[in-house]
């Protein structure tokens, strides 16, 4: 449990104590779990390390998922990132890291669900990218994960983090919102700026459906993680520039929940609509699973 039920409460607590959101979350979790802060910190540092290992192992050009639908794209992206591309080396390495983590997940590798396995590439693509680029310290990156975790806990309690309930906006959308808030803190922004970044990221992904081809966490999930990273980066940059969300963050969380409820079941992880229902989506499903199915 978290003491704070709303993101504005969390920001107020941080501002009153003249602390970061991550400090407030770390202290709160240590209290709730009944352990020393160092213990909670060490556990999060371990999770950052697993993220680093997933992003590394996913760069293997020979990596393939059980279905054969995915694998090897991170390796292509990494090679391309070295050329600089359009958006520069930072962004393209971030894309490569995101693909690598999500492809590692699809290939039954070890990952940190953040907040879900389907959206596991977004925090490594953002927080880890800032760390690997030398823009922050290891400790700042670990602390940023507490900020992300705090935001995710509120979204989980006030809305949902499950694609089956809220569509992809609840998975990749929430992950991008968590990452946006964390990025702002990493770059020295205020708690209020983190909240604005979080709101902007949520707003930009409202309505995103969950329509996985053949029900597998591959198409379009892997590339949607990259989209989530782009949303998080742009939201954080806007917030750090002083741009505010006119709709307060907690109202955006409520909107996410309402939009999720309004989505038809075919677009909530049932693999019945959207891309899953395209001719190619159906053909791929047929190729993977064949016709021999359950008696249902």
């Amino acid at each position: 449990m978290l003491t704070y039920q709303r993101i504005d409460e969390l920001c107020q607590a941080a501002e009153q104590e003249n602390a970061t959101i991550s400090r407030v979350i770390l202290a709160d979790q240590a209290r709730q779990l009944g352990v020393e802060e160092q213990v909670v910190y060490a556990q999060m540092a371990q999770r950052l390390q697993v993220m680093r290992e997933s992003a590394e192992s996913g760069m293997d050009p020979a990596l393939r998922s059980s279905s054969g639908l995915s694998g090897g794209d991170a390796s292509k992206m990494l090679a391309y990132a070295k050329t600089g591309g359009i958006a520069g080396p930072f962004v393209n390495h971030a894309i490569a890291r995101t693909l690598a983590t999500s492809e590692c997940n699809a290939a039954m590798g070890k990952i940190v669900a953040a907040p879900t396995a389907g959206s596991c590439g977004i925090l490594p693509g953002t927080v880890l990218s800032v760390l690997e680029d030398g823009q922050c310290t290891q400790e700042q990156a670990v602390m940023a994960l507490f900020t992300a975790g705090g935001i995710g806990t509120v979204i989980s309690s006030q809305a949902t983090l499950a694609g089956a309930e809220g569509g992809c906006q609840a998975e990749c959308g929430a992950a991008a919102a968590m990452a946006a808030a964390a990025l702002v803190e990493l770059k020295g922004g205020t708690p209020a700026q983190s909240a604005h970044a979080c709101a902007i990221a949520l707003k930009n992904q409202l309505g995103l459906v969950c329509d996985p081809v053949a029900g597998l966490v591959e198409i379009p999930c892997i590339k949607r993680n990259v989209a989530g990273v782009m949303v998080a980066l742009s939201a954080a940059e806007m917030a750090l520039a002083g741009i505010e969300s006119k709709i307060p963050v907690d109202e955006c969380v409520s909107a996410l929940y309402e939009v999720g409820r309004a989505l038809p079941a075919s677009l909530r992880e049932t693999a019945q609509g959207g891309l899953a229902a395209t001719p190619t989506g159906k053909r791929l499903k047929q190729e993977i699973f064949g016709t021999a199915k359950t008696d249902e």
């Binding site: 953040a114 396995a117 705090g150």
Partner: peptide
């Protein structure tokens, strides 16, 4: 708690 959100550490997918 935050480790249910930034976690669990698991084998995918």
């Amino acid at each position: 708690n935050v480790f249910d959100i930034i976690g669990p550490v698991m084998i995918g997918p």
